[in-house]
């Protein structure tokens, strides 16, 4: 589960002047032809850096994103829901493994990535810094947060970096179960008792603003992405992805009789795009910088997990072990 472009950090293209112009031209021509870049191919440092940042954030988002849903496994209503949610959470952690491996092919070790997550140096998707108070919150995540992630991941699967695309192909195939499971859960709540409907409506009210943040800052204020689009690191803009999500899922939410908590949300017949209340980007910045309702809890869970697993890693140490950068 991940929405791209979730920081305001700009990119400095100055380093491109240091690159070999002939190699840079060949690299760009390869991408323009639709070919994939593989780990041992020449690539500009900026491309490598941006990919590491993006894939690493994606991996962290999968592993942190498993936490708010994971807490609902024991309280999911009935054995079948528990089984499904457990499988989904296992998938999310598995996705993190695939993504860490893809990032490792670019030269950053998994250990360094985990360190950067725990110390707060690396970011993850902002939406997971919000709490899942009720079962309906968990259902919202399974259906709509995963739906948002699929919009983002299907686009990125057509990107230029081979190992990331291959990981995303596998992840997207698995996410289709998550989406159908989440929709199934919400249909049951929607067609259930008044109390169940109210529970989902309240979850929708809580999660809609973070959901609008999910695709990252508005194109009007987000960092310049022209070079990243040209290199197929980023495949569509934040606003385009947000619009695609609204196109696909607002009608489904309305169909179930729920009210989306934005009085300005409507499809503009002239532009063919959605009008909506501008999300609160100040809150987005505040939360991504550590001041959200659950930031501390999320990182603390990871820290305690690392601490409690230390004796296992100690026991597994062997002089013959050697870390080698993955091949592809």
């Amino acid at each position: 589960m991940y929405g791209g472009g979730n920081t305001f950090e700009g990119i400095k293209t100055d380093s491109l002047a240091q690159e070999d112009p002939q190699k840079l031209a060949e690299f760009e021509a390869r991408i323009a032809r639709g070919e994939k870049i593989e780990p041992t191919d020449w690539m500009p440092e900026l491309y490598r850096k941006q990919l590491v940042r993006m894939i690493e954030q994606h991996a962290h988002s999968e592993i942190i994103g498993a936490l708010p849903e994971g807490t609902w496994i024991t309280r999911a209503p009935g054995f079948k829901r528990k089984l499904s949610l457990m499988a989904k959470v296992q998938d999310e952690v598995g996705h993190a493994q695939l993504l860490y491996s893809a990032a490792e092919t670019l030269g950053k070790s998994r250990e360094q990535m985990i360190d950067d997550l725990i110390t707060g140096k690396s970011k993850y998707s902002n939406i997971f810094n919000y709490p899942a108070f009720t079962w309906a919150d968990s259902c919202f995540i399974s259906w709509l947060v995963d739906a948002g992630a699929i919009v983002n991941q299907l686009a990125n699967a057509k990107g230029s970096y081979g190992p990331y695309c291959r990981a995303l192909d596998r992840i997207c195939a698995e996410e289709s179960f998550h989406l159908k499971y989440g929709h199934h859960c919400v249909i049951y709540l929607a067609s259930g008792t008044e109390k169940q409907r109210q529970m989902f409506q309240e979850a929708l009210n809580r999660w809609w603003p973070p959901m609008m943040h999910f695709f990252g800052p508005s194109d009007k204020i987000s960092a310049h992405t022209e070079v990243l689009m040209r290199w197929k690191v980023k495949m569509s803009t934040n606003d385009d992805q947000r619009n695609q999500f609204l196109d696909m899922y607002v009608p489904k939410i309305w169909e179930l009789g729920f009210t989306i908590p934005d009085p300005n949300l409507k499809k503009n017949p002239e532009t063919g795009r959605w009008d909506y209340t501008e999300p609160d980007w100040e809150e987005f910045k505040r939360v991504i910088n550590g001041d959200g309702p659950c930031n501390k809890e999320r990182l603390e869970v990871r820290r305690v997990a690392e601490e409690r697993g230390q004796w296992v890693r100690e026991a597994l140490k062997s002089p013959s072990l050697r870390y080698v950068t993955p091949l592809a």
Binding site: E104, S109, R110, E111, I114, D115, I118, T119, G120, K296, L299, E300, V301, R303, V304, E306, E307, G309, Q310, R313, E314, L316, K317, L321, R322, Y323, V324, T325, P326
Partner: peptide, 20 residues
């Protein structure tokens, strides 16, 4: 969890760089 909220966040010990 024992110790929740009591520890400071530090880089973990370099132990899990297992083989690939």
């Amino acid at each position: 969890l024992p110790g929740f909220g009591q520890g400071s966040i530090q880089p973990k010990a370099p132990l899990d760089q297992l083989g690939t």
